[in-house]
Every structure is written in structure tokens, then in C-alpha cells.
Computed example of a mutant assay.
Amino acid sequence: MANVTFKGNPVTLLGNEVKVGEQAPNFTVLANDLSPVTLDTYKGAVKLISVVPSVDTGVCAAQTRKFNEEAAGLDNVKVLTVSVDLPFAQKRYCATEGLENAVTLSDHRDLSFGKAYGVAIEELRLLTRAVFVINSEDQVTYVEYVSEATNHPNYEAALEAAKAAK
């Protein structure tokens, strides 16, 4: 399992660590309208999944904005931001930030995504910061578990992986 800290304190991640080359695990999260979303919802597209503890914090907001702005021009790439924020809070955040096309997905109900991707923090019931790129065949092509959850991910590496994925 990835060794991760949150504000310098070690945390326990629930679920299985995802590795490059594996088939992406399925999950069920909620869209802002409370409809269920699964991996199959985006079948045939490259998925850049940006995982954040909460969109209401500075680093998470910056990460969400950066990936949505930078990947907007990429063909067949869907940027999905996953957190345990309630769908209503995610919708409000996107409206406040002017991110009309951002896709925010809530894992608050049962941590389906968090456990499937090994990002659920047991002690806080939040998701740790991570980035996954999944190609159009649902194979994992890039993984980053950010070692300190309050730090930024490697934006350039993730975007390059999304560009290279088919």
C-alpha cells in the first residue's frame, strides 16, 4: 500500500492499491444530480481521475481547476474529480468557481471509489490526493498517490499520461 501522510501524520488507506497495467476497478459514485455514475459511464473515453480530499480547500480547488483547464483541449479525455463532498457542495463549488464543464463526483455514500482505488483514509473518512489515468480500454496507464495529501500532484506527468493514452 502507498505510504501517505495527512498534515504530516501517517494515515491508513482502505482498499487495494491500483497499479499501472491493471484493469481499472469499477465503482459507483454520485453525480451532482444524485444519479449513479460508474466506470462504464465513460466507456471508450480516456479518463483522468483527479482525487481530492475536499473541493472546499485551496490545494483541492487549484487541482480541480488546473486539470479541467489544461485537459479541456485534449481529444477524448474526460476529467473526473472525485471527493467525498456532498453532490450539493460540489455543484455549488463548480458554480462559484465558474467551472461549468467540470465533472465532480461524490463518493460520500459508501466509499465505493475510495476502496476500489485504495484512496479512502480510514481515520478521516476522506479520500487522499491521487491521480489516475485510464485509457479507452479501461486499463490503468498512470497512477500517483501523493505522499503528503496536502501537497499538489505532478500535474505535468498526469497530463502527459492523458495525452499519451488512447
Rank of each mutant, 00 (worst) to 15 (best):
N16V: 09
G73R: 14
A45N: 07
Y142I: 07
A71S: 12
T150A: 14
E17L: 06
N151T: 06
V20W: 07
M1F: 14
R92M: 06
A149D: 09
F88Q: 01
T104L: 09
T57Y: 04
D56C: 03
P25F: 11
Y93L: 05
A89T: 02
V55G: 01
P36N: 13
L111I: 05
A157W: 02
A24F: 10
S83M: 03
A157P: 06
L86S: 02
P153Q: 04
G15E: 10
T150I: 12
K7P: 00
N9F: 13
T38Y: 06
T104H: 01
T28P: 06
V20L: 08
A95H: 06
V79F: 13
L39Y: 12
P87A: 01
A149H: 08
L159H: 05
K66F: 09
A71Y: 08
Y145I: 14
V103F: 02
E160T: 09
Y145A: 10
E22C: 12
K166A: 13
R129Q: 06
C60F: 04
A24P: 13
A130T: 12
T104Q: 03
K91I: 01
P53E: 05
Y117C: 07
Y42T: 14
A164G: 00
T38F: 06
E148S: 10
L99G: 04
I49N: 04
N3M: 06
E22H: 12
N9M: 11
L74W: 10
K78A: 08
C94S: 11
V103G: 02
K166G: 10
A162S: 13
N154V: 02
G114H: 08
R125Q: 14
F88S: 01
S35P: 00
T64Q: 04
P87K: 01
G8S: 07
N154D: 15
A72P: 00
P53M: 08
V52R: 01
D40C: 07
V59F: 03
P25Y: 12
T81H: 00
L127D: 05
N76C: 06
G15C: 10
N151G: 05
A158F: 03
V18M: 04
T104W: 01
D40R: 11
T28E: 15
A164C: 00
R109G: 15
L159R: 03
E122V: 11
A61F: 06
A24M: 13
P36H: 07
D138N: 15
V133G: 08
E137K: 15
V79L: 13
G21A: 15
K43G: 07
K115D: 00
P87D: 02
V11S: 07
T150S: 11
G8W: 09
E160F: 03
E144R: 04
E156P: 04
E69H: 02
F27A: 09
S147W: 10
V79T: 14
V55N: 02
A95M: 07
Q90C: 10
S112K: 04
G15A: 13
V103T: 11
N101L: 03
V131L: 11
D56Q: 09
A31K: 13
E100M: 08
N151Q: 12
I134Q: 07
V84K: 05
Y117D: 04
V133A: 08
Y93Q: 03
K7Q: 12
T96E: 15
S35Y: 14
N135D: 15
D110Q: 03
G58V: 12
S83F: 01
